[in-house]
Design a protein around this nucleic acid. Sequence first.
DNA 1: AATTTATTGTCTAACTCTTAGACAATAAAG
DNA 2: CTTTATTGTCTAAGAGTTAGACAATAAATT
Lengths: 275, 275
Amino acid sequence: MYETVHTSKSIREAGMVSWLSLPTDQSVTAENHYMYSRNEQDYIQQLSIDCVIFGYREKQLNVLVPKMDFRGDFWALPSGYIGQDEGIGQAARRILEERTGIQTIYLDQFCVFGDAERSNAQVLERLISLNGDKLVERGLNSKALEWITRRFVSIGYYALVDINKVIPRKNEIDESIEWYPITQLPTLIMDHNEMVAKALETLRLNLDQKLIGFNLLPETFTMKELQELYEAIFDKPFPRNNFQKKILDLNVLERLEKKFTGAANKAPYLYRFQQ
Amino acid sequence: MYETVHTSKSIREAGMVSWLSLPTDQSVTAENHYMYSRNEQDYIQQLSIDCVIFGYREKQLNVLVPKMDFRGDFWALPSGYIGQDEGIGQAARRILEERTGIQTIYLDQFCVFGDAERSNAQVLERLISLNGDKLVERGLNSKALEWITRRFVSIGYYALVDINKVIPRKNEIDESIEWYPITQLPTLIMDHNEMVAKALETLRLNLDQKLIGFNLLPETFTMKELQELYEAIFDKPFPRNNFQKKILDLNVLERLEKKFTGAANKAPYLYRFQQ
DNA sequence: AATTTATTGTCTAACTCTTAGACAATAAAG
DNA sequence: CTTTATTGTCTAAGAGTTAGACAATAAATT
């Protein structure tokens, strides 16, 4: 029904379009089935990477989520496939750079999702019934759909980024890509909401241990800002006096000059994370 | 060179033979390439599960490791593939039952290994050069070898079992399957030694938190036995008095009658883990 | 039968770490 | 100069951990 003989230019040039698209490159044409099938084999099949990208803004933990350019309100975590000559960490890093423009970011594998029932089937059915025309437009033929609708195992990574340095980038099938406060996430497809929950749980466990929280802040920050970050992540208040002591006792912060806030009170020190 | 037209009975009947064998079932014959390729598709390609099976015996933490029936001393963790209609946890459970005969065991996913360099290539080269004849005997044709030699991503699971309840089972390509004290593991293929190390690290992190250590002991045990288990896992001594207090304060143990050891001293209590 | 020996179970003082309250320092506003 | 709001630090109280001591006891020894 959605069979088509041409591959749309936008898809062809995408290089890598995640969820609801085949991995493609310049050599792909529907006329050349041999090349097509070779290209399909350039990626590991039925295995994908989903990324929970955390940023911090206005005292709230945020997650970067693209909305798909289809009728029906479909949100999905940034994701992609793994090249045959690419490590899974490399692949995650590539996907993240594509969506944030940032190269060196904190990245941690947190879980694999691979239930048998974990399928796109219902979501896809709804999406297809609402968007048949668009799918044809974009050159997704039945073979491409078959590739996508197979059961996938997905490796979950979470990333911590300085939200000010990120320029969110849509890909070809996105209507938008935006930061959502974690308390106000939309309903995502499949088990992606569960993935965010699991990522947050892992972040909490690792925060003290690995001092990774600093990846969410700009280079210099006040103690209060750091405290508010902790409060946002753990969704609970920390007592000011003891928080300061605990952090300073870690001996990982360098104290810089005072910050002139213009406020009617003692100016706070700026701190920097000792690389 | 190793091309062959028949598939050996042993392999055909294996159902699932991990590493160095295709996933196979009764319907596979080399003469029927369509069926063959259908069968290949019964499993997710390039994705495998490797299991670190921990047991506890004679005050030492042990790992169950099969030795492969090939010239050249090849040890590999028990592993297998994931059926198309099978969750990854289900698959791990199936692999474990095949090797231990035990159904309900503690199981935890600890890491995914997926470096691009993570390849069987060198090991396989050596194995093939030493065992060309055996491979032919066992019906591994070039297509099967191609399947195996592709790059694999592997999900690591570790399991905790009561070593007394396990009857280790060889599969078709094993020369032996035995418990090795973790301090005296042989050199395993690929990154399997690294996997064991990572599994142990995760076990240590989870031991207190999830009370999973009790899965390694028989139903009743003395406090000293539990302490020795902890000492084996963490490879360090625990002070007797405080260890007892710490464990009892968890309120998860039920104290039974005293154990008559025949030793010239006060008999220790037996304890049982409150399910 | 009393004493000795080895090990188990428990108690407590000393020590450390965490928590909660208090207060001085300070930048700007009144 | 005083007031206000916030920052930085100190300390006492409380909680938890560690180290030493000692009673209980099952069998061996005398």
